[in-house]
């Protein structure tokens, strides 16, 4: 798995368009939100800005790059070649998405660090923030693999990845701005809804860790749904 992850990392840094899309664009968006944090804090809360930052990286780096990478490797028949080696399917998929996952984690750690420094204080509950962020990333990664199953080419990824990328940020904004006092069940069941509630609670405080942990369940349920869809829909060779 590590040789494959290493090769993917090399390719990521050699491909300028992927580099710009996956690294620079999310950072530019994050800089925008951090610069106008006071405006967004008035609309929602400071925790809402943190949630939007998490889902910006999760959607536009982790999710979109996963979909594009897997579609490109399939279209170029590289997945087929990898399957002619001793590596298992799980090893191949893990090796392919590991670099983008690791980069996304480093990105969000740095961005939230800068955000905390700029806003004069970090999260009230760092453990809960880490748990919610990891759950959100796991969900977006699994959804990325599932979406790649219905994506024919890297170009097609620009269409197939868009609804969920926009969708989770919309859900994060809806939950972050309006809270969960109304339509709580719907908001928590939508992808990103429960994770946003956790991130807001972790940053702003006011929620006990043990009481908040059950809110991880909807996000992890989305992981299971995405894995089931990926198992059914993922293709290793281009459609003939």
């Amino acid at each position: 798995m590590l040789p494959l992850a290493q090769a993917e990392l090399v390719q990521l840094f050699r491909n300028r368009s992927v580099l710009v899309t996956s690294l620079l664009m999310p950072v530019a968006v994050a800089v925008f939100f951090i610069s106008y944090r006071d405006v967004f804090t008035r609309i929602g809360s400071i925790g809402y800005v943190a949630a939007v930052l998490v889902f910006t990286i999760a959607a536009f780096n982790l999710y979109a790059t996963t979909v594009t990478t897997l579609a490109a490797r399939r279209q170029g028949l590289f997945l087929k070649r990898l399957r002619s080696t001793a590596a298992s399917d799980a090893t191949i998929l893990t090796g392919l998405v590991l670099p983008v996952g690791a980069i996304a984690l480093v990105q969000i750690a740095l961005i939230l660090g800068v955000f905390a420094a700029a806003s004069g204080g970090g999260p009230v509950d760092a453990v809960l923030l880490v748990a919610a962020t990891l759950a959100a990333f796991a969900m977006m990664l699994a959804l990325g693999i599932a979406t790649a199953g219905v994506t024919n080419s890297p170009e097609h990824a620009q269409v197939t990845a868009l609804p969920l990328s926009i969708g989770v940020i919309a859900v994060a904004s809806w939950v972050g701005i309006t809270g969960t006092e109304s339509m709580a069940l719907l908001k928590r069941l939508l992808p990103g809804g429960a994770a946003t509630e956790l991130i807001v609670a972790a940053w702003d405080g006011g929620a006990a860790l043990t009481g908040s942990l059950p809110l991880l369940a909807p996000t992890l349920a989305w992981v299971l749904v995405a894995v089931a869809v990926a198992a059914k829909m993922f293709r290793w060779e281009p459609r003939r």
Partner: peptide, 14 residues
């Protein structure tokens, strides 16, 4: 294989 690909951004040795 009759038909399979390489990653265009990797070198021959890699």
């Amino acid at each position: 294989l009759q038909e399979s690909g390489f990653s265009a951004d990797l070198t021959v040795a890699e």
